[in-house]
Design a protein around this nucleic acid. Structure first.
Lengths: 216, 216
DNA sequence: GTCTATACACAGATAGAC
DNA sequence: GTCTATCTGTGTATAGAC
């Protein structure tokens, strides 16, 4: 009834709008239960849209799942690449990267958990990403580490396993949040917990960032 | 038919035997898909037993799930407690703990993944464990750290977040195995990868283990 | 105790009114 | 394009033969 003769800005907007609402809800549900465990009904209820509407937009449950994963991978890449670069010192670059990853775990825990679910289920839907884009990312960052080492700014350390360590620790503040919060006697982690996490990790990472004192 | 008049050692054995077979299969399937995503049929197929048999032993899918979790928690505790003790130096104790956790990720990846699944789903079935047993464990280990620090053997570091770091890095070699292997250009991680992981982590952990040189 | 056959509920997908 | 009503396959659980 109120569909025609509206302002032109509205054309196509409801669909884009709904698509985002659905993806946000789907991410939460898939993050908790994975592809096999999630119910389309639950997603529909969470974004307050009819189930048929969702399937109309995305074709099937798996189609919706793949769409949430694609959005995730795009974000993963966009966020990752600005800190670990030759222009930064190891100390500055690694702290920036760790803070960015930790902030992501705090702000978008569902995104991190969705990725973990996909890995636990075997990673079939991200296999290509892992073997190409992510592998290249690691090889690329290994060059930055090597550069730092040539400059005498960074201790010799295996680049891949060092990145594994950064990923696992920062993402754990999303994936294992329930466990960490319970240990700290809380229901959910608070800002200070994430800050403490950054500081503790930086305390260890600092030891491989060589302080240039007097090199001659 | 062959049930009676067998050797006395066999009495009750088939049931115990089957129970273990079922739990092993259930752990694998639940580790990949979680409670909601797992199919009892798949578990039955994996352990080559009729589905009804499984439900007869454990009452329901959730009953079986809780049983696998209980076995998991028992193992978690049994393995954890021998290394981080005041009798060991930080260097020896922490390396022993890290090697034990890493070996566990290598030998029993499904166990680690099952626990991760439970956490992702909200941890309802382990909430009590997290808030009591695990919390006590951390408080207890914090005392060991404090002792080491009084002896001048260990740098000041937040005990809880330090343990979070050890857990997340070691368990990631099970939970994120698909990702790590892909980055390393393999299908599965091999023994050397786990060894490299231990060494990389120890390289960082070493920096908080104060080498007693000349203290006077 | 063990297993086959089946009841029942539920979830993904679709047909068709609006 | 949107949503209600429904079809159909699948999965948990159980009844009942052996």
């Amino acid at each position: 009834m109120t569909k025609k003769n509206n302002r032109s800005a509205d054309i196509g907007v409801p669909r884009r709008n709904n698509t985002q609402r659905i993806l946000n809800a789907a991410e939460k549900i898939f993050a908790a239960y994975g592809l096999a465990g999630a119910r389309v009904d639950d997603i529909a209820q969470l974004c307050d849209l009819p189930k048929a509407n969702i399937l109309y937009y995305f074709g099937s449950k798996e189609g919706l799942y793949r769409a949430t994963l694609e959005r995730l991978l795009a974000v993963w890449l966009a966020d990752a690449d600005q800190w670990i670069v030759a222009e930064h010192s190891p100390r500055v670059g690694l702290e920036g990267y760790i803070r960015a990853k930790m902030l992501f775990s705090r702000r978008k825990p569902a995104t991190s958990r969705l990725f973990m679910h996909e890995l636990l289920a075997g990673g079939d839907c991200v296999r290509e990403f892992l073997h190409t884009t992510l592998r290249d990312f690691v090889l690329n960052k290994a060059k930055v580490f090597a550069h730092w080492q040539e400059q005498g700014l960074f201790a010799p350390i295996d680049p891949a396993h060092f990145l594994f360590l950064l990923w696992s620790t920062t993402q754990a503040y999303a994936d294992m949040q329930v466990q960490f919060a319970a240990v700290l006697g809380r229901k959910n982690l608070i800002a200070e917990d994430f800050e403490k996490g950054v500081e503790t990790l930086m305390q260890l990472v600092d030891s491989v960032c060589v302080q240039k004192v007097n090199a001659d």
